[in-house]
Design a protein around this nucleic acid. Sequence first.
DNA 1: AAATAATGACACTGTCCCGTATCATTGTAT
DNA 2: ATACAATGATACGGGACAGTGTCATTATTT
Lengths: 213, 213
Amino acid sequence: MAARTVQDTAAHPARKRGRPTADERASRRQHVLDEALGVFLEHGYANATVEQLARAGGVTKRTIYAYFGDKAGVFSEMVRSLATTVSSLAPDGDTLESLATRIVYRLHSAELVGLHRLVIAESMRFPELAQTLHDNGDARHIARLAEHLADERPADAAGLAPSLFILLLGEEHRKRLLGLVPAISEESAHTHAQAALATLGLERSPLAAMPLD
Amino acid sequence: MAARTVQDTAAHPARKRGRPTADERASRRQHVLDEALGVFLEHGYANATVEQLARAGGVTKRTIYAYFGDKAGVFSEMVRSLATTVSSLAPDGDTLESLATRIVYRLHSAELVGLHRLVIAESMRFPELAQTLHDNGDARHIARLAEHLADERPADAAGLAPSLFILLLGEEHRKRLLGLVPAISEESAHTHAQAALATLGLERSPLAAMPLD
DNA sequence: AAATAATGACACTGTCCCGTATCATTGTAT
DNA sequence: ATACAATGATACGGGACAGTGTCATTATTT
């Protein structure tokens, strides 16, 4: 086992003791979940210790056990919390191209790639989390794409949406999952999205696509 | 930590003691690697113990340490051994469609999906294995597809190959990585491949595509 | 044949970490 | 106010596992 060299997330300013106020208690729990992702990403699920989760969240082991039962509980709640966040990124009222760009950008982010890795790795032990992530991630994105496609391609929108989705991710995202490439920039996310649309013959109307100068 | 309920891979017929013959020694090492995949898939890399790897391979811990140094050594050599196998599945002399079908089928297999999961999960700790797997997997498949495409689409073969590749995997393969669907049948791999080709306008020539009866 | 190398079987030490207990401390309930 | 609940700090028992040591056993080398 690799020696644990680093001091982990530098200890917070040593919270005061005693029972927390009602407000505080509500936020503490979420704070633990937020910080948990970093711990799991750094060490992996199995190697992460409850002690590390506690320190990162600014609480003690006791509180972790009181709140979540055990490490699996922290992991489950963390994934569920993040999963519901994934799909909530649609300003509603954008073009197919801007939607596609946002999907590309978000799904290449370090946060979501890391989450995806963790859930894939533990999919045998936490199958319901895999389902949750897919339902709130891929499934919703594909549904959104299908809505937009319905306007432009009423005929084969349903069949085209999944194809568009995976073209948006592309081989780049597979490399990303393997850690072979860094997170994508917003700009290249845009050109990437355009390329995917073009591959399916979905580029903007010829007039809009003309040179701008 | 989850209680280890199962007895693991049922102990082999208790190999005799003493120094093995030269032939035997050569094969023993490979046998350990072959059996290691099952152990890692069942428990995950971090939870798998050297003792389990030893029992599955029909050797003792001592031999594991003598052969591979430690658990990481077993994992590395196992991945490398499997990676070189991944790409060696081209009978050479088949159509684009048959090549596509074989890629779809193989990459959906339990073995390769499991390997992929493991390498993704440990990509931070074993980055060179991720690179190896990609070089011997995706990269070669894309290159092969590009060769075939060069015949039919000399113009944009290079750009089209990655798109075709990920369309071949499709959303199905993402679900597969998450453990949400079982391995695909050879038949549905074929129809899946045909659909991907059609999406890019690469279906067979009209004559060949006509009904056969 | 004698020495050496590799292995199985087994024991053993040290470490890590889980989960709980104890006690002081601080907010909440009544 | 007074009892109670939740928390931090700390300690600790128990289990699991890594990695090594020892000895008997069997090939290989010379």
